[in-house]
Amino acid sequence: MTKTEKKPGIVTRNLNVTFNGVPAIENIDLELHRNTVTAVIGPSGCGKSTFLRALNLMHDMTPKCKVTGQITILDKEITEYTGVELRKRVGMIFQKPNPFPDMSIFDNVISGWKLSGMHNKKFYNEIAEKALRNSDLWDEVKDRLKEPAISLSGGQQQRLCIARTLAVEPYIILMDEPTSALDPISTQNVENTIYRLKSEYTFIIVTHNMQQAARISDVTAFFYLGKLVEVGSTRKIFTNPDEKLTEDYVSGKFG
């Protein structure tokens, strides 16, 4: 499996998620291609995050949450993966930077390997440097790798979380509002990172920020009240959407 093939990385068919019997997303049919950046937009509570978390089996942790329908990830049914196997291929970045607070910067970057029981220190240095360079953090932290991760600024912490995810070498990276807790400059740094890495990875970004979706994504999917309203090239969604609802949302008439 080469990473550059232009074929679907993620396909969902009739995907439903319910919490306590209440549907959060209903009948989502989506095809997300490899090496593209897909933005998922929509007002609060429309099921964006719920959709994203279904893609790396994160709902398994939530009691009384039920996921039905078909998800195909990298040409394989999601049910054929264990959680561990899947999440090594499908990484996730969260809204609030969540570095491990009692680990150093270095230990955070290699935590995915270390906690999975790979103990080769020489390999660690290589992985850490590559991942930190990829997330544009290397120059800022190369002299202080042993310092605690929480000594970094919020924006740096988020890029550290990206480095930590990149270090595991996933194919797909899910991002749940990755910049909503960051200042504009940190946001720009993260966006640059995504832009630069999109030839190697498949990104799916949930965002509240429509300018962000317009800036960095190739494809945009608009969710409303748990349903997929429209999906298409970002240019089309923002300039000439098929649905009236989409047009109203991207032009700021509601949200």
Binding site: N56, M58, M61, G83, V84, E85, L86, R87, K88, R89, G91, M92, F94, K96, N98, P99, F100, P101, D102, S111, G112, L115, S116, G117, C161, R164, T165, V168
Partner: peptide, 27 residues
């Protein structure tokens, strides 16, 4: 221990018991 730490660890493909021992118990 915040849920976000457990999720961070699980999202890296770390197993549940390893997350419990190395992240949650440690914290």
């Amino acid at each position: 221990v915040p849920m976000s730490l457990r999720e961070a660890s699980l999202a890296l493909g770390v197993s549940r018991w390893r997350t419990t021992v190395s992240i949650v118990l440690r914290t």
